[in-house]
Structure formats: C-alpha cells, structure tokens
Simulated assay, not measured.
Amino acid sequence: MDRNSNGYTFLFAGIMVVVVGALLAFASTSLKPMQDINVKNEKMQNILSTIGVTDVTREEAQGKFDEFIKEQLALKVDGSADESVKAFNVDLKAELKKEPEEQRFPLYVAEKDGNKFYIIPLRGAGLWDAIWGYIALNDDFNTIAGVSFDHKAETPGLGAEIKQQWFLDYFKDEKIFDKDGKLTGVAVAKGNNDKVNKDDNKVDAISGATITGDGVTNMIKERLVHYKQYIDNQKGKLASNN
C-alpha cells in the first residue's frame, strides 16, 4: 500500500486508536484493585479524622480503623439496624436517589480515650457538584466532636476551603439541637463571628462561598434528620437505665 495515500493514513490511524485504546483499557483494569484500596483507605482516614485520629497513612488506615471503630450499623428510617447490609459498603450517592424508607443510613460507633462517638456520613450538593463528609457526635448525641468535608469541583480559594482545617475547627463543640430540643443541625452563616458561643447552631461562612456554605448547611441537616429516630431510641435507653 502506498504510504502516501489517504487509505494508508486512515488505516494507520485506525490501528493506533485500537492499540492505544486496548493499552488504556488494560491499564485501567490492572490498576482498579489498587485504586479501590486507596479509596477505601482514604474513606477510613476521613472517618477517623472526625474523632481526632489524624496523621494516619493509607497503609495504617485499616489497622487504626479496626482499633477505634467498634461497631458499624446500617440503619433503617425507624432507627433499627439492617443486619444484612454492611455500613461501610453503603453508597450514599446511590442511596440519595431512593425514598427515605428504602435508604440505609450508615453509622460508625467509635471509642477513643474512654469516650464514645457516633460518626455519621454526609452527602449533598455544593455550587458545582457533590460535596460530602462525616460528622462525629459525642455520646450526648448533640455536641459535635469533629467533622470532615470534601468536594468534587468547588472553586479553589472559595468553596474548596470547606476541607481546610481552620473551617473544620469551627464545628467542634457546636450543637445539632437548639435550646428547645429541636434538631436544627449547624448553619454556615455570614457574619457569625462569635466563635465562643457553641449553642447558636451556627458557624461563620467562607467569604465568597455562599452557595457552597448553604450546601454544607443543607447537607448536615438533611442527613441528620434521618438519624433522629435512632438518637431518640438511644436516649430512651439511657434514660431507662438511669
């Protein structure tokens, strides 16, 4: 075949597309198990960070997770546990497409330094795409021990700041119930500069990131509402034991 002909050019280009595509597919398939392990370990790191277990490498994640996480529950909307579902495998992205009665709500029960914590996964919408995270509650089921947030495509220097430690620190010791006992979550509010008052159910907003902040506010409340029955059940058990 004439190498200067159009036919030869198209044939060569076609062969290259097939070869490169095959190589990319092989690489993707070969690397997927490693990618899955990295995603799993990063998830464990984020869960642990809410209770102050930080500086955990991905190689250490499984061991530390097993050390601090004492129980994993996949809750139904009535607060009972679905023993047939493993909490860690629940995909919130998929669950959010279901009706609440069909969803399963993961909960991680942790112990650290003699204290018990309840860690709830979060997922919502930011300005451009999904945001997600975890919120850890003390055993009073009201006080926040810590949070972890992440995002897919928020604006650098603005909405992307939700994952920075200085913003996460705002949430520590905030309450999710108001003074009347109503579950309100924590709102990201402009001008809330009083970082001492931990009973106002508010943290200061990130300048220029109003929509992302609103997304965090909505995400926290929307997810926590589905755990209220479980919280009420646990408080009832504690009251009857006392």
Rank of each mutant, 00 (worst) to 15 (best):
K93C: 07
I120G: 10
G236T: 03
A136F: 04
A87W: 08
E83T: 15
I206M: 13
Q62A: 12
D169I: 05
K43H: 12
K228G: 04
W132A: 03
H151D: 02
D199N: 14
K98P: 04
S80G: 08
N197I: 02
L75N: 04
N197K: 11
S80K: 12
T184Q: 11
A205R: 04
I37F: 09
K116P: 00
D214I: 06
L107D: 09
R3F: 15
T57D: 10
V18W: 03
Q35T: 12
F65Q: 02
F141L: 15
L127P: 00
G133R: 00
L183D: 03
K64P: 01
F12A: 15
I69R: 04
H226K: 10
D194H: 07
V109R: 08
V20I: 11
F88S: 11
Q45F: 07
D113N: 13
D199T: 15
T184S: 04
I37H: 08
I15P: 02
A187D: 10
N242I: 03
K32V: 05
G213V: 03
L122T: 03
I69P: 02
I15R: 05
F88V: 12
I51P: 01
P106V: 11
E99V: 09
K76P: 01
N41S: 08
A110K: 02
L224D: 02
L224A: 01
N192I: 04
M16K: 09
D200E: 05
D91T: 04
N6S: 13
G133A: 03
D173A: 09
S28W: 14
V20Y: 06
